[in-house]
């Protein structure tokens, strides 16, 4: 690597996404799945990317990995990984980065694992794909990685096939594979959604420990605000393909600026009085094929006014607090 990039690496955040746009060119029209997404993740930090189904959070994750298949295409913006734009990288350069410097964990661990190969085969292959090491060394690395994610007797478990693991254990293996090269960035797409609470708790604890000790930055994509509350440093909230709010987890969850974030947090049962009706956001998420003009939350928003016909920018209303709204909940922040 050249001198200049090394210098840039030290200063730049691990990942900086600027005005990312990924559109799908379908027969029914252009689906703007991701339309203006910006956020940054520093070294060793966890960013929670939160949104409901269809908000574009998964496509954002796939765009960072450059794994968007046609008819989808990244049509705008930049993805700066350690200061260098991934958009300009060739497919071969990307292949060297994926699984090496940037790893991904999927909701379904069987997306990562090959059902007909033993775990050791798959893990050794991953190690040797990016580094010239002997098989014995690769095996040792694989074993250590399994131990790190809390799999008991890793030596024996290496010889197992994926179907011999439970769901939670399989997800641990997928995480271990992601960790093999001590990546600088992990993109995790709903990795604990399919797991039971006690198992989810175990995995979240492991992940937290790993990020703190290895300095790996993490993009944690989820729909579960409670998971993000305990895990992440920062939070980015997505609605209809756009980041509508970004900031420190505690501040955003306690005093949300954007009416959508406000409504979303308000509808969580534990934020409501027991037995009372839950606060709810009226209406439904609009179709991405047919978004309303201006702010896409306008039709459901209790604070919408005439000027919402113009799409608001992601504006720094407060220090380190961004919101895409003309009428954010500033008075509540001031009152607190």
């Amino acid at each position: 690597m050249a001198e200049t990039t090394t210098a840039a690496t030290a200063a730049a955040p691990t990942l900086e996404v600027r005005n990312l746009q990924t559109h799908f060119f379908t027969r029914a029209g252009v689906v703007r799945a991701v339309d203006d997404v910006s956020f940054t993740i520093g070294r060793g930090k966890v960013l929670g990317l939160v949104g409901e189904s269809g908000s574009g959070k998964t496509v954002t994750g796939f765009s960072i990995m450059k794994l968007v298949d046609p008819p989808g295409r990244i049509v705008g913006g930049s993805i700066l990984f350690q200061g260098k734009d991934l958009a300009t990288r060739s497919e071969e350069e990307m292949r060297n980065l994926r699984g090496n410097r940037i790893a991904m964990i999927f909701q379904d661990p069987m997306m990562t694992l090959n059902p007909v190969l033993r775990i050791d085969t798959q893990m050794i292959e991953t190690v040797q794909a990016h580094e010239k090491v002997s098989e014995a060394d690769a095996r040792a690395r694989a074993r250590d990685a399994l131990g790190m994610v809390g799999i008991p007797s890793p030596d024996e478990r290496l010889k197992s096939y994926p179907h011999q693991f439970s769901g939670g254990m399989r997800q641990r293996v997928a995480i271990a594979i992601a960790l093999l090269h001590r990546p600088d960035l992990i993109v995790a797409d709903e990795p604990t959604t399919a797991l039971d609470v006690t198992i989810q708790g175990q995995i979240l604890a492991e992940v937290q420990k790993l990020c703190a000790t290895t300095g790996t930055a993490m993009l944690w994509i989820t729909h579960d605000l409670s998971v993000v509350a305990g895990l992440a440093d920062d939070i980015a909230v997505m609605y209809a393909g756009r980041v509508v709010e970004f900031g420190d987890v505690g501040e955003v969850l306690d005093k949300p600026l954007h009416p959508y974030t406000h409504g979303l947090i308000g509808s969580v049962p534990s934020r409501n009085k027991r037995g009372e009706p839950l606060r709810q956001i009226p209406g439904m998420t609009p179709s991405l094929l047919n978004l309303p003009e201006g702010c896409s939350f306008r039709a459901r928003c209790p604070r919408a006014a005439a000027d919402c016909i113009v799409m608001p920018e992601l504006h720094p209303w407060l220090p380190q607090r961004l919101a895409r709204c003309h009428h954010p909940h500033l008075e509540e922040v001031a009152a607190a």
Binding site: V197, T198, G201, Q202, S226, G230, V249
Partner: peptide
């Protein structure tokens, strides 16, 4: 008790997750 301790809550902030050892 351990089930309640494992549940992520929106009021929690950046804290160590409690864990129950072992699997179901």
């Amino acid at each position: 008790q351990s089930l309640l301790a494992s549940v992520p809550r929106i009021g929690n902030r950046k804290r160590a997750f409690a864990t129950v050892k072992g699997e179901i």
